[in-house]
Each structure stands twice: as C-alpha cells, then as structure tokens.
Design a protein around this nucleic acid. Structure first.
Lengths: 247, 247
DNA sequence: CCGAGACCGCGTACAAGGTACCCAGTGGAG
DNA sequence: CTCCACTGGGTACCTTGTACGCGGTCTCGG
C-alpha cells in the first residue's frame, strides 16, 4: 500500500496470461456481490457470503480483488452502468435531464446500498466516464464547461439527497419488520409530545399543515425535480429554451 | 427489539433515580466518541476505544446507550447543535441562509464522519429540532410551508453534496499519506491515458479547460451557493426581495 | 432503621468478519 | 520434460459488537 506500488483498480489487469485458467472473474464476483447487497444490504455482502454465492473458497476472491473496499468500488461503477443514457444528447435538454434524473433515482432505489459508499474523484470507472460524457453532453453546446459542471452538480445533488432520504426511511421500515403505517404509528407518541409541548411551532406546522409529505414518493420527486429544472432553465441563455418548459 | 418495547432514544430516560450514582453520562460518552471520530474516523470510535478514552469498562457504556448505532445517532444530533442559528430569523433571508450554509459546511468539515451516517426522519433529536425551527423560520413568513420545505431541502442538498465531495477527497488524500499534490499526481497516469485515448471529449474538456476545479474550496462553495440562493430568490414573491440580492 | 430490589461498573466469552499465510495442484515457456 | 508463476482454498489470527452474569451500592417502603 506504499505510494510506489499504488495503481488504480481500473489500471490493474484482471489476470496475466500465465498459469492455470481462473475459474471465476471480477465480473462474476461483482455481480454476485451486487445481488446480495440488493437483497440484504451492503453489510450482508461479506467475503464469505459472496464466496458461497458463486461456489468459491473465501480466499479465492482475493485472487481477483485486492480488498473488499476495492470490490465495493467495482460494484459502484457497475450499477452506474445501468443508467440508460445512450440516447442522451437528443436536442431537448429538459427531456434528457428528466430521463437521466429518473434513471438515477430508479438505480439508487434498486441498489440502496450505494448511499453508503464514499466516492472520491479519482475513481473514474468506465461506466462513470461514459455517463459523464453523455450527461454533460446535454448542456455542452449551451453553456461554458464551468457552468455545465455547476448545473449538473445541482441536479445530481438534488436527486441524490431526495433518494437518500427515501432510502433511509425504507431501510428503517424494513429493519423494524413492520408495515409502513405501523412504523409511522410507532413514532407517534414522540411526535405528539413534541407538538403538545408548544415549543416547536414550525415543526407542528409541518406535521399538521404540510401536504407534501402525504404525496406519493413519485409526485414528491417530480415536484422537486421541476423546481431544479426551472432553476437550470433560468441559468441557460434565452435561445436555449426547451420546447417543454411549460411543465 | 420487538415492536412492543420500542422507544425512541430521545424518549428513553438517561437514568432513573434508583441505585448508585452513575460515574459517567451520555453526554461524556458522546463527546468522547465525537472526539475520536473527528481525529481518526467513525470506524475508529469503537466501544473499546471510547471506553478507554473516558476510563470506563467496555460494557459499562451499555448502561448508558442501548447500542453503538444509537450512540452514533446521539453523536449526529450533538454536532448538529454546533451550527449557530440563534440569531436566525433576522429579517434578511439571504444573509441568514448564507450564514446557515457556511455553518453547516464548517460543521461537516469538522466532523467528516457524519457523511457516513444514515439518517431517517423519526430521529428528531433536540438539536435537529431547534435547527429546523430557526432555519425554516427564515422563510416561514414569505412562502407556504410546502414551498419552504422544498426550498430548504434544495439548499441542504446542495451544501451536503458539495461537502460530501470535499470530504471524500480529503479522506482519500489522508488515507494515502501523501500531500495533496502528490496524491493528485498519483492518478495522473490514468487520467492521461483517458485523455490520450480520445474517447472522452467532455472529460478531456473538464481536465484541460475548466477553471472551477482550480479555485479554492471556499470559492467553489461560494459560487455554487450563489446559484442556489438565486434560485431560491426566484421562487419567492417579488415583495420578499432581499436587500442584498445584488451579489 | 432495615431489608429488598433496582441499578451500577465491568470481566468473561462468543460470534462474525476481513485477510495473512501456507500448501498443493496446474499449465504455458524454455 | 522441467520450472515456476499462477490457481483454488483451508486454517488461523485479530478486531469488533454485545449477551450474560457477578458482586457491590443506593433509594425506598415499611
């Protein structure tokens, strides 16, 4: 792990041409890990569990992946590849970004464990790179690169934060083993005490007046996304107005 | 852990009036855990380490905290309390939100480990509640509660995403044991290969043309924040224009 | 004033989990 | 054919969260 021997996981060859043919592969291991993490959470994707899933010995995995951390990085890039951006610079930026946002959200909901992985810039996996090309291609002709970076970051951060909240709620519900309504009912005594105390007027207002929390997740998402897209629209030159800007 | 015996950590009394006086306290334990996590990361804040820090037996901690997970929740609420919002509904929403955003970012940078804690709605700790009151009080008179929720979420998600990236980069640098420039130099071979391949024009454009990545973290943050605040301004009724809206 | 019993600190013990180390077998290079 | 870098994988070690139980202590009901 010294600096001399550091190489990004993406530059490290999977195998050399020497010796016996490997029975497994990074792709197979990654896929198995993703499958387990989807079903039971990232912490369930232990090396032993993954090995069992593909019928390998535990230590065999280390022939393909330097450490569990690197495996998680592989997993993250793999699921990024699921977002369909092949048709992306279509000419209508609003449609493109809406589709991308929906795809990103759907992917996160399919793989809730990505919320717990810390990414960092230099982990430019192949799928992430492809995504960047397509996604930033959407606004590339309309704004300078710095503006593009800022606007895309705005969109990403909104989607991610929204989904992060959806996920942690769902996770909590699942862990409790209750139904959604039972789970919400469980925290009623506490919320009731807070409201009755009279010390939290705004919190009370949210609980009693706000209608947004009672919308479906999809509608909440659509509403928030609309706001962000309007915000992006305002930052674009007037000539770039999308034909769909009226809802 | 059955549903019958569930009570939120915030409703669970710290101690009863019975038996010998406890030597320690939740506050002391939480503070110690935060200190360790700040210095060495959340994963370093093990029960054994915390116990050693305050000179207690490992299992003694469980007299104060039901589990490590709950302790993390306590830690999260504690650091939320560090954001100074006491002067908050000041009448100038732009100043208030700028101050809040700066405080939130500074807090995250002081306690980078919060990026790894999953929150969920029902964990309304006392400090979080206070924060919500003050923060949402800023726009309460200007917009309906649903709009307020949306705008505050927008601000929060932007700040959090930005800081999350700062943090993961810093973490990666720290883990490598290198200086920032050495660390960046380390991924140069990979980036160079990508650029030279010619397959990633936008990525190349970012690497070669974008100036934003070369700004200081503070300037990057200021720029992004300005965009979000402008976006919020656009969503407010015209009469609510802040005196500072020109920059 | 005196049990009783709830609560304290904490040592012991166990079940996971990541992974270092080692060994036997394999198959391409010379 | 020989060599040896490579393979799969078993064993073992260390770290972590925490269940359990023990002996001591303090408050309260009588």
């Amino acid at each position: 792990m010294t600096e001399a021997e550091y190489v990004s996981i993406w530059m490290r060859p999977e195998r050399s041409a020497y010796g016996p043919k490997p029975v497994h592969s990074r792709a197979k291991i990654t896929a198995a890990a993703v499958r387990i993490a989807d079903a039971e959470g990232l912490e369930a994707a232990t090396m032993r569990r993954i090995a069992a899933e593909i019928g390998a010995g535990v230590m065999s995995l280390y022939r393909y992946v330097p450490s569990r951390e690197d495996l998680v990085e592989l997993m993250a890039d793999q699921v990024l590849g699921e977002i369909d951006v092949t048709a992306m610079p279509s000419g209508d930026w609003r449609t493109d970004l809406t589709r991308y946002a929906g795809g990103l959200r759907a992917m996160w909901l399919r793989h809730p464990w990505i919320a717990t992985v810390q990414r960092s810039l230099p982990s430019f996996g192949p799928n992430q790179l492809l995504l960047v090309e397509r996604l930033m291609g959407v606004l590339d002709a309309l704004v300078p690169i710095d503006e593009n970076l800022g606007l895309v970051a705005l969109l990403n951060s909104h989607v991610e934060s929204t989904v992060r909240e959806e996920i942690s709620t769902a996770r909590e519900i699942h862990r409790s083993g209750l139904s959604e309504s039972e789970w919400m009912a469980r925290s009623y005594p506490y919320i009731d005490r807070l409201v009755k105390s009279g010390e939290y007027p705004i919190f009370t207002k949210i609980v009693t007046e706000a209608r947004q929390p009672h919308l479906s997740r999809e509608d909440q998402f659509r509403l928030g996304l609309k706001r962000v897209l309007d915000c992006i629209a305002a930052a674009l030159p007037a000539t770039a107005e999308s034909p769909m800007s009226a809802h």
